[in-house]
Design a protein around this nucleic acid. Sequence first.
DNA 1: CTGAAAGCGCTAACAG
DNA 2: CTGTTAGCGCTTTCAG
Lengths: 333, 333
Amino acid sequence: MARSFVTLDDVAKAAGMSRAQVSRALRGDPGVRPETRERIDAIAAHLNYRPNLAARSLVSSRSSIVGLIIGDPNNPFHIQLAQAVDRRLLAAGFDAVTSLRSVDDSAALQEVERLLSLRAAGVILLGPAHHPKVIGEIADKLPCVFIGSKRVSHPEVISIAVDDDSGVRLAMEHLYALGHRRIAHLAGGREPSSKERANAYNAFMTEAGLEPLVIRGKHTAASGRQGVDILFASATPPTAILASNDFIALGVLDRLKGLGLSVPEDVSVVGFDDIPDAAHALFSLTTLKQDTEVQAQVAVQALQAILAGDTAGKRRIDMPVSLVVRASTAPPK
Amino acid sequence: MARSFVTLDDVAKAAGMSRAQVSRALRGDPGVRPETRERIDAIAAHLNYRPNLAARSLVSSRSSIVGLIIGDPNNPFHIQLAQAVDRRLLAAGFDAVTSLRSVDDSAALQEVERLLSLRAAGVILLGPAHHPKVIGEIADKLPCVFIGSKRVSHPEVISIAVDDDSGVRLAMEHLYALGHRRIAHLAGGREPSSKERANAYNAFMTEAGLEPLVIRGKHTAASGRQGVDILFASATPPTAILASNDFIALGVLDRLKGLGLSVPEDVSVVGFDDIPDAAHALFSLTTLKQDTEVQAQVAVQALQAILAGDTAGKRRIDMPVSLVVRASTAPPK
DNA sequence: CTGAAAGCGCTAACAG
DNA sequence: CTGTTAGCGCTTTCAG
């Protein structure tokens, strides 16, 4: 194991130049003759030089570290989003430090302490598991971007808000236009996004003069299965189901099949998120697509704006949601 | 946003002591009068002091950072393991820096570069997505512990090897004892763990004088569904299925239900991993349990041993796998 | 374009 | 038990 590290001084000596100049060359500072830069680059590479991030951050009193706190690491959709953010962060020259500790409010705060000690440049909060008050506290300590559906009202936070409301509306209009009238909603737990979606569903049903039918559960496939059992125990089961996310929808699909019901012939199903599995031929789920790549990109740009001291930007950026129509929806029989 | 940081000097001045003594007090060094320590702690807390990890690591030339590279972040089981390791690392006083970049060999190496720049104390590799050669290269640069089923033969790596072989044997003996003879195996992809499991299955079948039947796929539910379709297109379908992991098994369960077959009456199914869903009443999957908590603990202890210069320890630690019998297995009809 | 000098915040000998 | 003294490796003025 190579236990000793090559320092800037070593490179400088090998190049017959000063430390300062080597530093400039390696970082791509202007003011270095191109041929000199190339030579230094070559020597550094040859010597296997790795800049010491600690020293760099110490002297410049800022670091390239950005924290990434995942609200619910056990939800693969959040992981997918986190990966996208991670990739963007890297591309922007940051070092993402991800926290997998499921964040109840205290774990999140603890993670922030650690980021503070690392002198992180900022933090990106993923997913609506975070309490708004806690988000505010975090933003008091560190530049902060929040991706989620919640309405955060803190002057320092930029929130990337998934537009649950228009998403649900899109789905409901689709089902309504197909002719469905008995449309049930399988909601998630207490996450704000789940509430937003349920509210939007209720609003649509009421406006359309229809009877809302909401079953509360969790954002899991198992919850979707249970929901189906409850719904189809009724004498007048729904002809369509709007699930609060794709995991629920996948559970619904499986359970319907188990009950001998066909999708979309007997029942139409719509999900939310467009996880990779949704596109699979076996499911071919009609769902609402959140573009994680775009969300990630916007989040990183927002963070850069904050760091650049750009206070003029919007505090809230709405992300569009689009309806992806696949084979799980059709007119009722 | 609190943009300025309190330094050790600030605390020292407020306490009327020297920087060195404050440093000792705060780190819990012996040689500080208890009352003094308390006073300093109080002042530091009051001033909201946060040690600058960069400065600390710079001067002591070692850091508390440990990298955590997840082989397949999109596999929730790996996330679960990672969370366990993360927790143990924190408890041991390390700062886990997790990488979500799915690691093909080049991404892993790139991540290691970053850890090198952070002067990480070591790295823990999770899951068998890593190529043995790459693991060796990593170990050349950084103290390294590997959790996975592969046989790694590098003098510097400690590998925590899940005992796939005896696990599979356990499951096969269980099925055989129940009276099953036509037992099929749904294998995963090219991950070594998948190969190990398939080999163990083949070995058992051959020894028992039975005809092996392996269908290659991936470690996903969708793959399990497809496997069932292939198996039950045959005139003599199997009476039992050993899946290479729980995701496959869950897909198998769903597809069997779709085909109108009952588990365990018509077909017995065994998984591998014991993911949380497996215990769910809806599935009640008989499976092979890997104790992630224990694996995590052993991994962290192994890392500490390496860091302590303890070269006497074993290079390879086998982790037991146990059979959890639930309701998805029974004698054949 | 390049070099010299001055620290960033902290720990680790070494003296008291 | 406590203070003094040196830097750790790097970036950043400020002069050439």
